[in-house]
Computed example of a mutant assay.
Amino acid sequence: MKKILTLGLILFINMSFAQTQLFFEKADAFFKTYVSNGKVDYASIHKSPEKLNEILEIANKVSVSKDDANTYQAFWINAYNISVIKGIIDKYPTNSPLANPGFFDKTKHNIGGKKIILNDIENKLLRAQFDDARFHFVLVCGALGCPPLIDEAYLPNTLDAQLTRQTKLALNNPNFIKVKKNKVEVSEILKWYKGDFVKKGQSEIDFINKYRDQKIPAGHKLGYYSYNWTLNAK
């Protein structure tokens, strides 16, 4: 009996691993097909949603553990971004995710064996479990005000480099961080989640300068520009 149970456990682990790898492969192909320059081809996805639906079916069968942090984070980041696209497609055509009441806090998605809202993926499964402000530059809410969606999946073995790359991309973008004479205007993301950026005694500008090529001089006044909730469509 013990041998049968052990073989069953090994089989389950192998199947779970295969399902997770299949998710990453399908997600990577999906983003490469429908995302370019940070914009999503929602019209084409809406016309032929089979690939999107296939990925979501696979995603619902995936089980990941926080003990394997890179796989866990990569899965839930991709799952968030794909679920945002699914939410848009379900209401397409639409001009903004905010045009759909409950988009982030009421609409449930079947991911990882859970019925879960987007806010809980971001805040409970990622931010509450890991102290990493770079999440804010890879979780894309379907709007132009977000950092751009990349045309590839986040993968466990490249996750750290991808997180850093996307954070640098956003914080060096003059449309995202607007440096003027003695003032710097930043996305409201840094206001809404201020606590994530000012830990260990650092300021928001200290955090920004960690990733900027051209540092913001000391003494610059920090301000926030209005978030653009227009759909990030091609």
Rank of each mutant, 00 (worst) to 15 (best):
A153T: 13
D105M: 00
T107N: 08
G113A: 09
A153F: 14
L118D: 03
N172L: 08
L159Y: 10
P148D: 05
G142E: 09
I116N: 03
L169P: 09
N100R: 12
N173L: 09
K108I: 01
N123S: 04
H136N: 13
T158K: 11
E122K: 10
L139I: 04
K108R: 07
E122Q: 07
D132W: 02
P156C: 02
R134P: 07
D120H: 12
N182H: 15
L169I: 13
V179G: 02
D131R: 11
L125G: 00
K124Q: 14
D132Q: 01
P156N: 00
G113F: 07
C146H: 06
Q129G: 04
F104C: 04
Q162I: 06
L171K: 09
Q166Y: 05
L118F: 03
N123L: 05
T107P: 02
K168M: 15
I121N: 13
N172G: 04
N157K: 15
N110A: 10
V138A: 01
G142H: 08
N175F: 14
G145T: 11
L171N: 08
P147Y: 05
I116C: 02
P148A: 06
V184I: 15
F104L: 09
E185L: 14
A99E: 13
C146Y: 09
K178F: 12
G142P: 06
K106W: 00
F135N: 05
N123M: 06
K168W: 13
N100P: 10
E152P: 09
K108Q: 02
K114I: 03
G113M: 11
K178S: 07
R127I: 15
I116D: 02
L169N: 15
A170K: 07
G102M: 01
K181N: 14
P147E: 06
L149D: 06
G102D: 02
A99M: 10
F176L: 03
P174M: 07
A153K: 12
I116K: 03
D132F: 00
P156Y: 03
P147V: 05
A143L: 04
E122A: 03
K183Q: 15
P147R: 04
I177T: 15
E185Y: 13
A99Y: 12
E122S: 02
A161V: 04
P174T: 04
T167F: 11
L125T: 01
P148E: 07
D120E: 15
P147K: 05
G112I: 00
I121V: 15
I177R: 07
V186T: 11
L139V: 02
D160V: 06
L139S: 00
T107Q: 10
D105C: 00
L144D: 13
I150E: 12
I121K: 12
F137N: 12
P147A: 04
T158V: 00
N157L: 14
I117S: 03
D151W: 02
K106T: 01
L163A: 03
L125D: 04
K168Q: 15
I121T: 14
F104E: 06
R165G: 00
F103R: 13
P174Y: 11
D120I: 06
E152D: 11
P148Q: 04
K183P: 05
G113C: 12
L159A: 08
P101Y: 09
I111W: 01
K106Y: 02
G142F: 08
H136S: 10
